[in-house]
């Protein structure tokens, strides 16, 4: 088990670095799909099959398709130019160091007396057995009932994105020469 986890973590790290380094957009998109797939695999090991399933479908599936179609729409992918990036690297290292500093007081991985595991008491699993009349999957119970309004919110986000994409991509029927307002609104 441990070996698998190590292998997965190493693969995840390698994939992420590869994505950062690669300059060919097509390859980057493929590696992003692989990254999502690897994350989904690790999620299975971390006892979250529902999330793994969704990540595999949405992350590795839908978003890869979306990116590929965007690439198709935006035409022949130009190779991404290489440029030195000291400032981003600095910001990232500082942020990462802050996060590592934050982990020092964290409950250890898998610790059964972590606050997350002991609170609330009775736990969601115990509560849902009484509340949900024998629904086996506690994640479903939480998603649909206890935190149903988050799910409504999530649906609203999808609705928003749908309307937004329509708004953005729909052609203005009275598409006049774009240069006129441009010239007028030109900033200094």
């Amino acid at each position: 088990m441990n070996l698998i986890v190590f292998a997965l973590l190493a693969l995840l790290a390698i994939t992420a670095v590869a994505i950062a380094q690669l300059r060919e957009l097509w390859a980057v998109i493929m590696f992003t799909g692989i990254y999502s797939f690897l994350s989904a695999s690790w999620m299975i090991i971390l006892d979250a099959p529902d999330v793994a399933f969704t990540e595999a479908a949405v992350g590795a599936g839908i978003s890869t398709v979306l990116m590929l179609s965007t690439m198709a729409l935006t035409g022949k992918a130009e190779d991404i130019p290489r440029k030195s990036s000291v400032v981003p690297l600095f910001v990232v290292i500082v942020t990462g160091a802050t996060l590592v500093y934050g982990t020092l007081d964290m409950p250890h991985f898998g610790s059964p007396d972590a606050p997350v595991q002991v609170y609330p008491d009775p736990s969601f699993v115990e509560r849902s057995e009484a509340d949900m009349h024998g629904l086996p999957n506690v994640v479903t119970a939480l998603l649909a009932s206890y935190r149903g309004y988050d799910t409504l919110g999530e649906t609203t986000v999808v609705l928003t994105a749908g309307i937004a994409v329509l708004l953005i991509l729909r052609k203005n029927e009275d598409e006049q020469d774009d240069t006129a307002p441009l010239a007028r609104n030109k900033s200094s």
């Binding site: 964290m106 409950p107 972590a114 997350v116 609170y119």
Partner: peptide, 8 residues
């Protein structure tokens, strides 16, 4: 992180 430290 807050959730991790409090469980809620």
């Amino acid at each position: 992180l807050l959730y991790q430290m409090t469980g809620t």
